[in-house]
């Protein structure tokens, strides 16, 4: 039957809406994973033992199990203990925490490799350890890992397709819906791929801008 792209315009609104969901979920989860990653790194490095140990278990759960399972746990599992989250919220939390753990690993290493003279200089002017971390050490550590965090964010975008399985009509699921109506999988999957590609390009562009901006302040 060959390819027929003329079917696309009739369903473009559905796919575009899905695209918007993908962008929204990705941006929200990316922010959660960034700030969550910083918080996790601080806990992993500086929290007292009693907090750090249980935290390690949480970290292991997010690193050592499939993201798909984590999404099921958050969306279907939590309902049983009375936490009923909308699917897109469950998706954002699952993606966000999953990648927060990966970002945390990067940020921990970066914090430890900030020159110790920086902490000394900050303490010398009278800052407490916490103030020195917040104002001096962590901002530098985060700057050092913007490129690998950017890579994690691209992975996050791609993995956002997984939230389709808990019923969020993001880009992949919207494409499937259009396919269900038209029996044109190749055209609509290609269209979805093209949208992912464009979002990807935008993210890379943002990352390059951030990198250029901070180049001078490193």
């Amino acid at each position: 039957m060959g390819l027929d792209f003329t079917v696309i315009p009739g369903y473009l609104d559905i796919v575009l809406l899905g695209c918007l969901w993908t962008i929204g979920i990705t941006v929200a989860a990316a922010l959660l994973s960034f700030f969550g990653g910083i918080a996790f790194a601080v806990v992993a490095l500086y929290a007292p033992w009693i907090i750090r140990q249980p935290f390690r278990l949480v970290e292991w759960v997010f690193m050592g199990t499939p993201l798909l399972l984590q999404l099921f746990l958050i969306y279907f599992g939590l309902v049983q203990i009375g936490i009923d989250l909308p699917a897109f919220v469950a998706g954002i939390i699952g993606l966000g925490l999953h990648f927060a753990v990966y970002n945390s690993e990067l940020i921990q290493t970066a914090i430890l490799s900030v020159d110790k003279g920086q902490m000394e200089a900050a303490r010398t002017v009278g800052l407490s350890r916490g103030q020195a971390l917040r104002k001096v050490v962590i901002p530098q550590a985060v700057r050092d890992v913007i490129p690998p965090i950017g890579n994690n964010m691209i992975a996050l975008l791609k993995d956002s397709a997984l939230v389709s399985v808990i019923g969020v009509s993001e880009l992949t699921l919207s494409a499937q819906r259009a396919i269900g109506a038209t029996y044109r999988p190749f055209e609509f999957y290609l269209l979805a791929a093209a949208f992912y590609y464009v979002i990807n390009l935008c993210m890379e562009w943002v990352q390059r801008r951030i990198e250029r901006r901070i180049a001078i302040s490193r």
Binding site: D115, G117, E120, A121, V125, V136, Q140, R218
Partner: peptide
């Protein structure tokens, strides 16, 4: 806060 210190390697905050 009452004792200023200057280091061999400056230790300025690069950011």
């Amino acid at each position: 806060q009452q004792i200023g210190m200057v280091f061999q390697h400056f230790n300025l905050f690069p950011h």
